[in-house]
Design a protein around this nucleic acid. Sequence first.
DNA 1: TTGAAAGCGCTAACAC
DNA 2: GTGTTAGCGCTTTCAA
Lengths: 336, 336
Amino acid sequence: MASIKDVAKKAGVSTATVSRVLNNHRGVIPETRKVVREAMDYLCYVPSKSAFQLSGKCSGLIAVVLPNLVNPHFCELLATFEEEARYIGKSVIVKTHQNQPQQDKQIIHTLIGMGIDSLLWVPTEAEAELSEWLIATHIPVAVVTQVSRFFNSVSIDQSKGAESIAEHFIKSGHTTFGFVAQEGVDNRKVSSWSKKITSQGLTFDKENQFWIEKGKGERVSGHISILEDIIEKLVARKNQCTCLWVYNDVAASYIIDGLKERQVAVPQDIAIASFDNTLLAQTKKITSVAQPINEIAHLAFTMVNNESEQENIEMYEIVSRLIIRESSVAINITTL
Amino acid sequence: MASIKDVAKKAGVSTATVSRVLNNHRGVIPETRKVVREAMDYLCYVPSKSAFQLSGKCSGLIAVVLPNLVNPHFCELLATFEEEARYIGKSVIVKTHQNQPQQDKQIIHTLIGMGIDSLLWVPTEAEAELSEWLIATHIPVAVVTQVSRFFNSVSIDQSKGAESIAEHFIKSGHTTFGFVAQEGVDNRKVSSWSKKITSQGLTFDKENQFWIEKGKGERVSGHISILEDIIEKLVARKNQCTCLWVYNDVAASYIIDGLKERQVAVPQDIAIASFDNTLLAQTKKITSVAQPINEIAHLAFTMVNNESEQENIEMYEIVSRLIIRESSVAINITTL
DNA sequence: TTGAAAGCGCTAACAC
DNA sequence: GTGTTAGCGCTTTCAA
């Protein structure tokens, strides 16, 4: 690989001049510029990013750290980030921590070593542990999809989402309410959901509440055994649980299929709603809480790309809205 | 950010010794090692990857270049690559060219400048133009999903897939056959599909063949107007086209929804099959040609990670298989 | 077992 | 307008 020296020699100038041409600095006469350009072409010269970086410049690297790439929700996030990065001429480096704080920590270390310009992060609990040190690096961080005590964050108003699901179910005439939630993650959803129900003078049954350990419901290729259990229980509780929300589309889709296989009709026997409104929810007609991903990504980007050193932590909370589809209302029946 | 010098000073040793400790080189007495380690911890030292790289080492970067991240097929590919990369302690840098050769070229240049260790590539036509130069860089390249004249490649036997779809339709008793294919991309599929049909003494109608310009069918959020046209035509041709294959799951799903909205029953009025067998096909029960993505990714990885300089271009062609689902056979009717 | 110093490719301050 | 040179953070050879 040709280096700047080779180009300089070929063009009969100094490396400084080559550098100037490279960076379009003014103060190089057109003739020289032309000669240098030709030498570059001739040698198929490509400047070394790491040398550039080492001499005090930015890396042009934006890190995107996600739980996984199996959930379409995270893929959509990534897609938008990549698009935004492309737009400003930067590169995205993706990593997944699979909900393991240990991995998450390791990843952040590696990324710091690479000199990333900014970090877009859906963190594990490792976030708290790393916060002090990470802040000291002065690398702009935006926590995405979650609220953060330490960094700028762009999140979805999960409680509003859960509330609107409750509202939707109540309006549809349901009187028994259930959910499948992720331990630790979905506490806020659950509390505002239950508040909404009790505020209407209604009650809910502990038997209709299914908690699953964080990360246990993620594996999608093949069976998700933990969801199988829940499906069995739901079948057994037919009529005692007529509506249900599920923590995300992937799991909801899985549960819907499981129920249908066992002759439980959705939405007639049990109405279902979920979160994320991914392509999956759109195509499978699942009622789902839409998180405007473009907006999230855009906000996160601006935060992280903002030159101005800001003092306090900014917390954006995006308003979600419920997209009602056939998994929660029997459209065929009501509209025909 | 603390550098190796800071650590050396703090530990009262030379930078060479710090480097030795860092890389677990032998020939450092435990006592020294301990002191250095402590200094590192104290200073929260993280070695600079770009300096490492500049001193002649590998970057640890694996580039994954894809058409887009909207199609779940590419997301699945990426997910597998990221997993494999994580396994061997490397980082993935993703880029999408949106089917624009110009972008593709630009991307490859940028990546070369970054000193990537290897390239996993679903290229545009820019491939041919870049080949000579790219080969000269000696960076291991694996073309994925397509066959390549210039690089190692792992592809799917597209013709077999199309053939098996034809076979499936013929066996199901269809006598009129249609497709929606991508110009330039799907030529092989089409030719083996038509060969299969004629070999059985059957014929097909030009009116049932829909070609769409490459890249025109990709936008998924919102409407894909070009597919809308096709849907209308299909509705008009009810009974004149009883089965159809579509170039990928995303498009197939879109078409199925469009047909159902217009009271055309799938599969009763028109049976549909597609390619990729993504999560989408699985959940929407679309008959689809499965490409064993794990296998593809794994093969591509081994090729690219193989230390041995190989002489000739290796071409792997993975055997696909047809997964039959409800979009092409009325399971409810036949099995109940 | 450890240190000194050159070199990787680039930038930028300074000199001419 | 252009060249000289130090320096970015690391590795590695050679000497001690």
